[in-house]
Design a protein around this nucleic acid. Structure first.
Length: 485
RNA sequence: GCCGCGUUCGUCUAGGGGUUAGGACGCCGGCCUUUCACGCCGGUAACACGGGUUCAAAUCCCGUACGCGGUACCA
């Protein structure tokens, strides 16, 4: 058995989106679980949709997630080049060999004559090809002349009549299609570029790909590819078509539908929003696959050791942002505090907050378990860095009673003269004050929290005060006393 | 329209002839607690429908419905 070789073959028509990452992930997991190799191949045969920085984005997105590839345009490898635009001659040569063997033909039809064909609801296939303008309907000599004169043309696959094309998909099982339902597919476009169908078959063969793992949307074209392999006399690789990721409302997870649901669509957006790469990977892995146990939280390397294609389901799955949030919280919590610091820094900077490492470390330690996304630190816990400017009105009504100002002021006075600003002392001083004023501790705790953070929710009060430090704590307490009265 | 693929709690899913149909997210309730989270405990909720096959069907077969995908000189 030869070594497993998998390719991830995106086309650079835009930034890598979440569905593409899922495909890449499954490719990676399968390759690694089999001890095989994975190659990144850029399918840039559509010049009209080419996006300049897309390739770069794809590479960075994979890197961010830790999906390392073995061969790629920048890494090189034994089957270079890995950009299809750089392999044009190969495709042309193979297409022509197909014409020679009678499996393909030149076609000169204008776009308007094809449009007319389709208007009559007819396909370009065995039943119509003889009415069209191609090398099947003209003498060899005429064809040669037209070709030599540089007339625009394409090369089409001559799909055989009345055969059933069948293949065994590793995920879907047996799939078969009657060749009558397959068009004479364009193999080489009039600009000389191959279509996906040709390029992908030629490259998979030449790059010794053993398994094609790609999205469900390719199932209908796979019979065309099988036909191509047969025409070339090649053995097709194994096929595995992954179920699609759907929008929560059911449709295709398009840019528009995703935006409406608040779902980031490009991988770079997940990064920008403070999602953990491991969480995104974990979430994606479980969209259509499960290990058969009840474990759910996995890192990439752990996934690699338990992944198998047999356990990939065949039904499409809806994207669930809440579940992703849960995975993110799980992975965020497992992060080493120093790594968390790195995660959180960009968000502080974005908000113009300059914070020293030691202090940030204290804060992170304090709120670590309460973060779901890294950016929560600045959105939920800004009071760790700047004095509160507003106080939650509901909190005021509920917690800032008539004696609050005097109690808080008293507490501030006691803190102000404290020598060791540790949690035990802070708590002792507060309870002592409560006792001497004959009130419950909560009568002070709550207004103090409100004064210091502007809200009624948050980490343990004494730990919070300790982190804020004496100067800040006292300043905020006194400030609240004057503001709230 | 035609072709293909699919259908278990709201969502992700386990289970594939005999199960109280299991887990996770979400939601609800409780415990913990100075608050809110975390955590823990408990609850809610599903085999699309109709026919077969069988002693027995969520599970196998056939239809129907619904959903999704494809139907390009896009991938």
């Amino acid at each position: 058995m030869s070594t497993v070789r998998i390719r991830f073959a995106p086309s650079p028509t835009g930034y890598l989106h979440i569905g593409g990452l899922r495909t890449a992930l499954y490719c990676y997991l399968f390759a690694r679980s089999q001890g095989g190799n994975i190659v990144l191949r850029i399918e840039d045969t559509d010049r009209t949709r080419f996006v300049e920085d897309a390739e770069d984005d794809i590479v960075q997105a994979l890197e961010w997630c830790g999906l390392e590839v073995d061969e790629s345009p920048m890494l090189g490898g034994p089957y270079a080049p890995y950009r299809q635009s750089e392999r044009q001659d190969l495709y042309r040569k193979h297409a022509e060999s197909l014409v020679d063997s009678g499996h393909a033909y030149y076609a000169f039809d204008t776009s308007s004559s094809i449009a007319e064909l389709r208007k009559n609801n007819e396909a370009y296939n065995a039943s119509t090809r003889l009415q069209m303008d191609n090398s099947l309907t003209h003498s060899e000599e005429v064809v040669r002349m037209r070709l030599e004169s540089g007339e625009e043309h394409v090369i089409r696959l001559r799909v055989p009549e009345n055969v059933t094309v069948q293949f065994n998909d590793l995920i879907k099982g047996s799939v078969s299609v009657d060749s009558a339902n397959i068009d004479d597919q364009v193999l080489v476009k009039s600009d000389g570029m191959p279509t996906y169908h040709l390029a992908n078959v030629v490259d998979d063969q030449h790059m010794a790909i053993t398994h094609v793992i790609r999205g469900d949307e390719w199932i209908p074209s796979t019979p065309k590819h099988i036909l191509l392999y047969q025409a070339f006399g090649w053995q097709p690789p194994a096929m595995a078509h992954l179920p699609l990721i759907l929008s929560p409302t059911g449709g295709k997870l398009s840019k528009r539908s995703a935006q409406r649901q608040g779902i980031p669509i490009n991988v770079r957006d997940y990064r920008a929003k403070g999602f953990e790469p491991q969480a995104v990977i974990n979430f994606l892995a479980f969209l259509g696959w499960n290990p058969g146990t009840e474990d759910e939280v996995f890192e990439l390397e752990e996934l690699t050791s338990v992944f198998s294609l047999e356990r990939v389901g065949s039904a499409p799955a809806k994207f669930d942002l809440d579940k992703l949030g849960w995975f993110n919280a799980q992975h965020l919590r497992r992060l080493d505090i120093e790594v968390l610091l790195e995660r959180v820094r960009p968000f502080l900077e974005k908000h113009g907050m300059i914070v020293e490492d030691d202090y940030l470390r204290d804060v992170c330690f304090l709120v670590h378990d309460r973060l779901q996304q890294a950016q929560d630190l600045v959105t939920h816990f800004s009071y760790c860095f700047v004095d509160p400017v507003t106080f939650d009105p509901v909190g005021i009504r509920k917690r800032w009673k008539s004696d609050a100002a005097s109690l808080v002021d008293d507490y501030a006075a006691r803190l102000d003269v404290l020598r060791s600003f540790n949690e035990e002392t802070l708590e002792f001083k507060l309870r002592d004050l409560a006792a001497s004023r004959k009130v419950g501790a909560g009568r002070i705790i709550h207004p103090v929290r409100l004064a210091v953070s502007g809200t009624t929710a948050g980490p343990g009060l004494f730990a919070l005060l300790r982190v804020l430090g004496r100067r800040t704590s006292v300043r905020r307490l006194r400030n609240a006393v004057t503001r709230l009265g």
